Amino acid sequence: MRLFSRRFEQPLHDLFNEHAQNLLGGAELLSQILGQPLRDRARALPRLHDHAARSLELTHRISNRLADSLITPFEAGALHDLAMTVSDAVNAMERTAELASAQGAGTVPDVLLEVAGAIERSSEIIVEALWKLQKVKELENYYVEIRRQRRHADRLTLRATLELYEKGGAAADLMRARDLIESMERIAAHLDQTGRLADLLRVKAP
């Protein structure tokens, strides 16, 4: 199935590829920030802000191209949602890094660094999947892989939550740590939704 008309195929395809690469770059940078000492996190934040700004710009450009493209309303809507969800994931990465920097937390627990690794892997899968948008019938296995990473991230964040409550401490500290866990859960949820949308395009393809 040819998802994009010849007139618009290459520009849209390139924009989605760039969008996915920007997502992966944000995921890699988030892992680096979480693994850094507290004093170094703030210095790295502007780079992640750049990824978020770039994501917003690419989403807007994709929306404009879709408005002029010769594809069905369903395909345009699904592709628009796909672009928006990728942008939501990058924004959630930015927020997570800001939380880790602003809370004054020391070393981020190893279990959350493992979650960041699962987020990176999901982002890599999304890069691979968005390369296939011109041949959506080939997307059959991508959501299965993204879903596996989501389940892995869910198990890790549950473990992080249980460890947090077992450790105890001041209520304010518990709430700050819980906010960070929930922020990482949102990233994983956005990436999972990206996989769902790609799979929906495959299922709906004639």
Rank of each mutant, 00 (worst) to 15 (best):
H51D: 10
H51K: 15
A52M: 11
A53S: 11
A53Y: 01
R54N: 15
R54G: 13
S55P: 14
S55N: 11
S55H: 08
L56Y: 02
E57D: 12
E57Q: 12
E57I: 03
L58N: 10
H60V: 14
R61A: 12
I62F: 00
S63N: 09
S63M: 06
N64D: 14
N64V: 13
N64E: 15
R65Y: 13
A67L: 08
D68N: 05
D68G: 07
I71D: 07
T72C: 00
F74P: 02
F74C: 05
E75W: 00
E75M: 00
E75R: 02
A76E: 04
H80G: 06
D81N: 13
D81F: 10
L82E: 01
L82V: 06
A83C: 08
A83I: 08
A83M: 07
A83L: 05
T85M: 04
S87M: 06
D88L: 08
D88T: 05
A89F: 05
A89Y: 04
V90D: 04
A92M: 08
A92H: 07
A92K: 05
A92Q: 12
M93G: 07
E94S: 12
R95A: 10
T96C: 10
A97S: 06
A97G: 12
A97C: 06
S101W: 01
A102N: 09
Q103S: 14
Q103E: 11
G104E: 03
A105I: 05
A105T: 03
A105Y: 04
G106C: 03
G106D: 05
T107W: 00
T107N: 04
P109G: 10
P109T: 12
D110Y: 04
V111K: 02
V111Q: 03
V111C: 07
V111F: 01
L112N: 00
L113H: 00
E114L: 10
V115G: 06
A116S: 14
G117Q: 11
G117L: 11
R121K: 14
R121E: 15
S122G: 12
S122Q: 15
S122Y: 07
S122L: 12
I125C: 05
I125Y: 13
V127A: 03
V127T: 08
V127L: 07
V127Y: 02
E128W: 00
E128A: 15
A129K: 00
L130Y: 00
L130K: 00
W131T: 13
W131P: 06
K132I: 13
K132P: 13
L133N: 11
Q134C: 10
